[in-house]
Amino acid sequence: MDSRTVGIPEVDGSEQVAVVIDVMRAFTTAAWAFHRGAEKIVLAADADEALAIKASHPGWLALKDGAPVSGFDLVNSPGLIREADLADRTVIQKTTAGTVGALAVVEAKVALCASFVVADATARALADAGAGPVTFVATGDDGRAAEDLACAQYLDRLLAGDRPDPGPYLHRARASQAADDLRLERRRGAHPTDVDLCLEVDRFDFAMKVGLEAGMAVLRPLRN
C-alpha cells in the first residue's frame, strides 16, 4: 500500500486516508481511556474549547497535557488514566500535538488515531476498509519526533503484509527526546510508567477512528 509521512504543517486537505500518530502520549492515553470504559473521546482544539464543551455537557470529563488545573478532570498520562473509572463516560481531550493532528484530517474518508499500543488493530482496520494510499501524520515536533516516525514506519511494514520485529522501532522510540523528557520529569503531569506503557506493542485489540458527529470531532474505538 502506498504511503507518505508528513508533519502537521504539511497536511493540506488532500488526505483521503490518514493515520494520526502520537505515541507519547495522546493516543496511548486515549487507548487506555477506552480500555477503562470511555464511550467516546471528543477532541478539542484548545483549552478554552475543551472547557466550553464541558460547560455544555456537565457530565463529561476534560483532559489536557500538563499538571492538573482547575476545570480539567484528567491528565494526558497513560500511567494515570489507567487508574481512572471511565465506564460509559465521555472524555474531552486536548493535547499539544495529537489532537491538533487529528482535527487537521477529521474530514478525511478514513481517519484513524494510533500509537504502538493499537498498531496491529490499526493496520487491520485499514486493510478491512480497503483503504488506498495512506498519509501518516507524525504529530510530535512538527513531524520530526523519533517515536512517531518509528511507529509510522512500523505500521507501514504491517500494511505491506510484513511481520516485522518491533524491537528496533521500540528502541528508537525509547531513545527519543520525548521519552527522555518523561523519564527526567521535564513534562508535568507525567507518571513514572508512562514511557513503558507507550511502548507496549498491541496492548489493545481495537483501532481508533475519528470523525465528525454533531459538529464535533469524536474518537471512538473500532473493533474488528
Results as ranks from 00 to 15, higher is better:
residue 76 N to S: 03
residue 132 G to V: 13
residue 174 R to M: 11
residue 78 P to C: 00
residue 152 A to L: 11
residue 144 R to I: 03
residue 148 D to V: 01
residue 63 L to T: 05
residue 22 D to N: 00
residue 143 G to T: 01
residue 35 H to F: 08
residue 201 V to P: 11
residue 76 N to F: 02
residue 207 A to D: 05
residue 42 V to A: 09
residue 41 I to S: 08
residue 81 I to Q: 03
residue 83 E to K: 14
residue 201 V to T: 14
residue 46 D to N: 14
residue 64 K to A: 08
residue 16 Q to L: 12
residue 186 R to N: 04
residue 222 L to V: 09
residue 76 N to T: 01
residue 15 E to L: 12
residue 129 A to I: 10
residue 18 A to W: 01
residue 149 L to C: 08
residue 16 Q to F: 06
residue 167 G to V: 14
residue 82 R to P: 00
residue 117 V to C: 15
residue 204 F to A: 06
residue 107 E to T: 15
residue 85 D to E: 04
residue 171 H to R: 15
residue 188 R to I: 01
residue 208 M to T: 05
residue 129 A to P: 04
residue 196 D to H: 12
residue 6 V to C: 07
residue 210 V to C: 02
residue 124 R to P: 09
residue 78 P to W: 00
residue 171 H to W: 10
residue 105 V to L: 11
residue 37 G to C: 05
residue 168 P to C: 09
residue 99 T to M: 09
residue 39 E to D: 11
residue 58 P to K: 04
residue 101 G to V: 10
residue 123 A to H: 11
residue 148 D to L: 03
residue 186 R to D: 00
residue 8 I to V: 15
residue 45 A to C: 05
residue 72 F to V: 09
residue 93 Q to H: 13
residue 49 E to F: 03
residue 75 V to S: 08
residue 52 A to K: 10
residue 185 E to N: 13
residue 51 L to N: 06
residue 13 G to S: 06
residue 128 D to N: 14
residue 180 D to M: 10
residue 14 S to A: 15
residue 194 D to V: 08
residue 104 A to F: 06
residue 110 V to R: 07
residue 50 A to K: 09
residue 78 P to K: 00
residue 69 V to W: 00
residue 40 K to A: 10
residue 210 V to R: 00
residue 35 H to V: 02
residue 107 E to L: 13
residue 30 A to P: 02
residue 166 P to M: 05
residue 39 E to C: 07
residue 142 D to S: 11
residue 49 E to N: 06
residue 81 I to H: 01
residue 155 L to I: 06
residue 127 A to G: 14
residue 223 R to H: 13
residue 191 H to D: 15
residue 142 D to V: 02
residue 211 G to F: 12
residue 12 D to R: 13
residue 82 R to Q: 13
residue 69 V to M: 10
residue 58 P to V: 06
residue 95 T to M: 07
residue 146 A to L: 08
residue 209 K to T: 06
residue 7 G to I: 03
residue 57 H to F: 09
residue 50 A to F: 08
residue 76 N to I: 05
residue 142 D to I: 00
residue 165 D to F: 10
residue 12 D to Q: 10
residue 182 L to N: 04
residue 42 V to S: 09
residue 27 F to W: 11
residue 27 F to M: 06
residue 214 A to F: 07
residue 124 R to D: 15
residue 80 L to V: 11
residue 83 E to F: 13
residue 91 V to K: 05
residue 105 V to P: 09
residue 108 A to C: 11
residue 180 D to G: 11
